[in-house]
Design a protein around this nucleic acid. Structure first.
Lengths: 362, 362
DNA sequence: GCAAAGATCCAAAGCGCTTTGGTAATTAAA
DNA sequence: TTTAATTACCAAAGCGCTTTGGATCTTTGC
């Protein structure tokens, strides 16, 4: 039989069965006050280097990490950022962008010692959720995703007086607010320009849902490109729906069966573009030769647009990068390194792939 | 000029600029003790119905919601569940499943007053993160995603002595642990059976990465189906990689160019299946007539397998449902309604689409 | 009519941390 | 040598909640 001193016992138990070791027990173990241990751990200057070293070693040995609840209660900061995914009973699709955006943002959070609080609520309870997030002190900041045209949530968040940032913009909101967005209008104008340069005139636009702000901007870019050349974009060739593969296939099939089928397609999503391509090839046509396709590419990690050479000609902008930038911006706002609204407009690259070519005479 | 009484002033300020109203101010406003207000809000019986009503009204009026940090410090529960997404520098793909799984889980969390804490950390810091999550009291439970074969994280979590649940299983772990999983082996055995019944013998399997546990099970099902008929599955036709569209296209194109090309393909992901289909049609062949394809379908919301009739014949199992079940299970474990490990095996449906048919004589 | 039980309320302690406002000991400056 | 400044530490208050252990008053039972 082996005898343990009291010291050894507590040590053992802290190491084996992970007993809750808190500041009090740790400081008792060290023979120091809680104050000193706390300040030692938090890097305050009024603790000698030798004792600081002792403290850090003990903290590691006992696997101590401060209770985040107590800490945030004491400091008033939670080091947490809230993301809300509204659930719509109509179309409860999870945006395919979501995963990569969140991954980008939370990488930056992690680097800065923040974590991300995710909540999924019915659309009509969203405002309420923001309210509670703020008044319960659960988060230091809020990220707003997928703004619609004239999104009322933005004004609400400003009034709530909590740091926030928007992924995307909202036409109709005149006040200043912090955002990160792709220059959707420009991207789609350039894409349309390319197609027009190649001689295409009958171009179909397969856009996202029109309530979404980005869809409006893309449509505008599309129309503007035509206008600049004093041509009119055919309104019959402008579609908008949730951006699935089936949507691309269906619309393309239908529209190719009409009297004057388009010679080119412009798509808001790579997934939809896959459907467009399928429909084209179903007709025995060849994408890039018979019919041109340009798509927006969010650079989703599980949906690479080809390896070395892009498959689709695309307007390309990383949604994961947008997440990182947004996270950085929000953290700076929280830590008051920057004050007031901030904005970040990302320009999409236009990359040439194998899906475009001059209009062919069939 | 208008004169406000002190009472009106505090009331105003609480309503307009959302001043932090806490239990103390609320109880002062009501002329009650903090104890009574707290118990009133939490539904304890020792507060009269009339005063409870008064309390609830005041709480609503002042937009009071308890400070979650203080509450969880006092109760020792955080009502938060941790999800960790490991980042691998090799293949830092965000699993396309992620969005829908998380959406499913967080719906249940929301219904039960929980929220979800998401952290993305480098793979080698994952264990450390679990450790900190536990000892910092940040979460009441942990969800483990994407287990590999013989995943060491599972044993670690059990030793950590915190409620947890695994999405998927890990072959090689003999101890009991709570999980929710699809019967991958059975699903793929049935899918293979179907193809064999249709006369196919040369079947290619496009599987996920072999470190992933599900991939092993699917491969086993594939092989078993052959074995049962005393045939041998050709090992040259078994592939595994990250399940992108390009992967499906590339492998299919290559394998169709060989001397004895397969007449059927079995895919682990709908995205990969899209690539398989493209390659098939690129060769001027027709999926379902010339070459059969069966795929697993996780029922991702942005990737529906057809509308009314499925496009692909598929083994179908909703990953969002898995998320919901897992969340429910974990919450019950946390609230000790159920004790000890629990398991939930989901059977995948085998749905017939247009992508399969009898082996054709070309 | 009086004790026991029931109904309502409350003061104070405690959750685990940070921070304020010190004290004591040492060193530097005058 | 005395005083001021610096260094290294600490006791106690406070963050906003829950919970324990009463206290007070009313109702019930016999």
């Amino acid at each position: 039989m082996r005898f343990y001193s009291f010291f050894e016992q507590t040590l053992q138990s802290a190491l084996d069965i992970s007993l809750a070791v808190n500041l009090k027990t740790l400081s008792e173990q060290l023979g120091l006050s809680q104050t000193t241990v706390s300040r030692g751990l938090n890097g305050y200057p009024d603790v000698s280097e030798t004792t600081r070293k002792r403290i850090l070693e003990a903290a590691k040995k006992y696997n101590y990490s401060p209770n985040s609840r107590a800490k945030s209660l004491a400091t008033g900061k939670s080091r947490t950022i809230g993301h809300v995914i509204p659930t719509n009973s109509q179309h409860e699709m999870v945006n395919p962008i979501f995963g990569d955006f969140v991954a980008g943002a939370s990488t930056v959070y992690a680097e800065n010692g923040y974590s991300m609080l995710l909540t999924r609520v019915p659309e009509d309870a969203e405002i309420d959720t923001y309210n509670r997030m703020k008044s319960s002190g659960a988060v230091d900041g809020i990220v707003l995703q997928g703004p619609s045209v004239d999104d009322k949530r933005i004004d609400f968040l400003r009034k709530l007086d909590i740091p926030y940032a928007v992924h995307g913009r909202s036409s109709g909101i005149t006040s200043d607010y912090p955002w990160v967005d792709v220059n959707n209008r420009r991207a789609f104008q350039r894409a349309t320009d390319l197609l027009l340069d190649l001689g295409h005139r009958n171009i179909a636009l397969l856009n996202g849902l029109e309530v979404m702000d980005f869809a409006g901007r893309r449509k505008q870019g599309f129309i503007d490109a035509f206008k600049k050349r004093s041509i009119e974009a055919s309104p019959d060739l402008i579609f908008s729906a949730e951006m699935t593969e089936a949507y691309g296939y269906k619309v393309t099939t239908e529209v190719l069966a009409t009297g004057s089928p388009p010679t080119a397609f412009l798509s808001s999503s790579l997934i939809t573009a896959l459907g467009i391509r399928r429909a084209i090839e179903d007709q025995g046509l060849r994408m890039g030769r018979d019919i041109s396709v340009v798509t927006h590419d969010d650079m989703l990690s599980y949906l690479p647009n080809g390896d070395s050479e892009p498959v689709f000609t695309a307007t390309r902008s990383s949604v994961s990068l947008a997440g990182r930038i947004l996270a950085q911006m929000l953290i700076e706002k929280i830590e008051e390194k920057s004050k007031g609204p901030d904005a970040h407009l990302l320009e999409a690259e236009l990359v040439l792939g194998q899906s475009t070519g001059p209009v062919s005479v069939r």
